[in-house]
Design a protein around this nucleic acid. Structure first.
Lengths: 152, 152
DNA sequence: ATAACTGCAAAACATTTGCTCACAC
DNA sequence: GTGTGAGCAAATGTTTTGCAGTTAT
């Protein structure tokens, strides 16, 4: 059932991408298919170079420029989110829908990234934006911390 | 009295920088003095190039490399905060103390930046980090939004 | 057919660094 | 005097782009 779930998930992502591309008059090409597959198989937050390596393992003819171009495209189509963890490069993560919205807690010592979701936080952010006279369209939130030492 | 406050404020910032430099065995040079002055006169969130322009207006011999080196130094000394508003470059803002901690609401249509502070948010972030087993050392939060249209 | 897409290499940016000289202490 | 800091220019790392050829529709 787990396998089935994953299979459905991938098919879902691919067909959603295909639908969105068609809708916008864009082509479903081999590079885009491969990149979409790599994204749906990735549970982490790869940067462009890491995506490039994973994509090359499947089709070595795909270029880094295409990774960047496709990430920009997928971002506009709300298929991926671009993240910034404070090192100089952009990270990308698949965005299946509003239901898997989350934030990141980054261990500044190990670089480890923990994802979390907090409804209270969501409500508060929306309220703050509203109070300032804004409709919230996006937000960045990253917490940086060190693992708390147990008191002996 | 407002004028007096500002005068005290600026002097405070400058001497604080000088004190911190001395404390760390660093030298108070002309470039550092000029950059400190520009920072304390800046109410906005300039990037390196903008700082460079403002600094050059006072002393044209100061180089961009020195802006970067000094920003890194001042960041380590907790004199400035480095911010990322999603365009590719770092922004800097003076940090007078923990009391003027705040976040940013960015108008995605005009690029306007509104600063805000919310105690509830501070508490919540600390609690989230704590629940995840972390001691919060830093955080990034930016809200992106569009001005809400009044319902006629 | 033909417009969108790609790879490649070069360009564009922001930022960092090596080197030599200058200056604060 | 001595080591820290500066300017300059070259290097770096990431992301973008021009161009000429390729491919999906």
């Amino acid at each position: 059932m787990v396998v089935e779930d994953e299979a459905v998930g991938e098919a879902g992502v691919l067909s959603r991408i295909e639908a969105l591309c068609a809708e916008k008059g864009l082509r479903m090409t081999e590079p885009r298919r491969v990149i979409a597959r790599v994204l749906s198989d990735s549970e982490d937050h790869p940067d462009a170079e890491e995506l490039y390596d994973r994509v090359k393992a499947i089709d070595s003819s795909i270029s880094l420029a295409t990774i960047y171009r496709t990430m920009k495209l997928f971002e506009e189509m709300s298929i991926v989110s671009k993240r910034d963890f404070g090192d100089g490069r952009a990270r990308y993560e698949r965005k299946s829908g509003p239901e898997d919205h989350h934030h990141h807690m980054i261990d500044v010592e190990s670089g480890e990234v923990i994802e979390f979701y907090n409804q209270e936080l969501e409500d508060l952010k929306k309220r703050i934006a509203h109070d300032l006279g804004f409709e919230l369209v996006d937000h960045h939130l990253e917490l940086f911390g060190v693992r708390r030492k147990k008191k002996h």
